[in-house]
Design a protein around this nucleic acid. Structure first.
Length: 359
DNA sequence: AATGCGGGGGT
DNA sequence: ACCCCAGCATT
């Protein structure tokens, strides 16, 4: 028996005995599989599972999803991150519902054309839903292959992508691609873990290069190039005498696209109460200059993203004016209750939870 | 080929 | 503090 076949067979046996019972398994429904795969991109099962259940309950089929408002979908997605996934999910739902009469594409090649569906997700849907013999390559598969075959080419390099892809197809069980793919990923997620893998319980350790050469800690190799930027956000809460506030949707190419937030002034350094006055709304609302911003949070909020650290302060401006008398077309007028209907970042959500702005 | 995009959890 | 996660789109 070849090494490739040994790997696939052992992992499939292990999978049958050890797999988690997850709601998107044991179905061939492409809608459910697609939905789960989008949610699980760069997201652990534990984090994505409640969102999957919530989405399926609200949108039982692709037409329901297609007919929803984008703002509603973003609100449902709130907290899951990578919000372009939610926007692409909605875009593709509308496409499938209207252009394809609700029928999903049935091949890897066609699935790949869908917005938000890349090589991994196309292979996952094609194999899980239609038993097409295509191999999935995700973080788990890279790790298992890298360790078992002792491949030290960086997984996120161009050369690595080619090598790992050819290995993945070499070991693919073309008769049971769905089982094979799911087993590979589950093996990486539960046993061949990034830190402290359970090599003692791994029936493959006699033929695993990393185990035999004590290299599990150094494999897989990954190029890192992450440099974190510091950003300073000053959210200014303009609050009228009847406790209404202004919020604005984030547009343009930046984080949290299409989510809502308080009027924002971004600065190069931590702001002081005077720099806060630079915000356009002070002019637009024609506010008296003696007005004083008061900082609501005692300690600056540090919000960590993959690629930037955001230091956020929240300033309160109490103004005795009626927002509706001004032409503030880019802003919404809300109160402490109605603001909860809008999709916001976790940074804003945490602030709202900690500072109830009602009286 | 390189970069930007969230948030939670593990070590 | 650093790494990882059922990756993808854009440039």
């Amino acid at each position: 028996m070849s090494l490739s076949q040994l790997l696939s067979d052992e992992i499939k046996i292990w999978y049958k005995n050890n797999k988690r019972d997850l709601p998107w398994r044991n179905t061939k429904n492409p809608y459910k599989i697609w939905l789960s795969e989008i949610i699980l991109q760069q997201t652990q099962v534990k984090q994505g599972l409640p969102y999957y259940n919530k989405f399926l309950k609200a949108y039982a089929d692709v037409h329901k999803l297609a007919n929803a408002e984008e703002d509603e979908i973003l609100k449902m997605w709130q907290g899951l991150g990578y919000y372009s996934r939610a926007r692409n999910l909605h875009f593709t739902a509308k496409y499938i519902s209207k252009e394809c009469k609700g029928k999903f594409p049935k091949t890897y090649k066609e699935l790949l054309k869908l917005k938000g569906v890349g090589e991994y997700t196309a292979a996952a849907i094609a194999s899980f839903a239609y038993d097409e013999p295509v191999a999935v390559l995700d973080g788990n598969v890279y790790r298992v292959l890298s360790r078992y075959f002792g491949i030290d080419t960086p997984v996120n390099s161009t050369e690595g992508a080619k090598i790992f892809k050819s290995k993945a197809y070499e070991i693919l069980d073309e008769n049971k691609p769905a089982l094979h793919n799911q087993a590979m990923m589950e093996y990486g997620a539960l046993l061949c873990k990034p830190k402290s893998p359970d090599c003692m319980f791994c029936s493959l350790n006699p033929s695993c290069v990393a185990f035999q050469q004590n290299k599990t800690k150094s494999l897989p190799v990954k190029l890192k190039k992450l440099k974190r930027k510091k950003r300073f956000f000053n959210y200014i809460i303009f609050q009228s005498s009847d406790k209404e506030m202004l919020i604005k949707q984030r547009l343009g190419k930046d984080i949290w696209q299409k989510l809502y937030e308080f009027p924002l002034l971004e600065t190069q350094k931590p702001a002081n109460p005077r720099t806060v006055f630079d915000h356009e709304l002070f002019k637009k609302l024609n506010l008296p200059t003696q007005i004083k911003p008061t900082k609501i949070n005692s300690k600056t909020n540090k919000h960590v993203l993959t690629h930037q650290d955001i230091y956020a302060d929240f300033w309160l401006i109490e103004c005795s004016i009626d927002f509706k008398k001004f032409n503030l077309k880019d802003y919404e007028v809300v109160n402490y209750k109605s603001i909860r209907k809008f999709a916001v970042s976790i940074l804003i959500d945490k602030f709202l939870n900690n500072h109830i702005l009602e009286d």
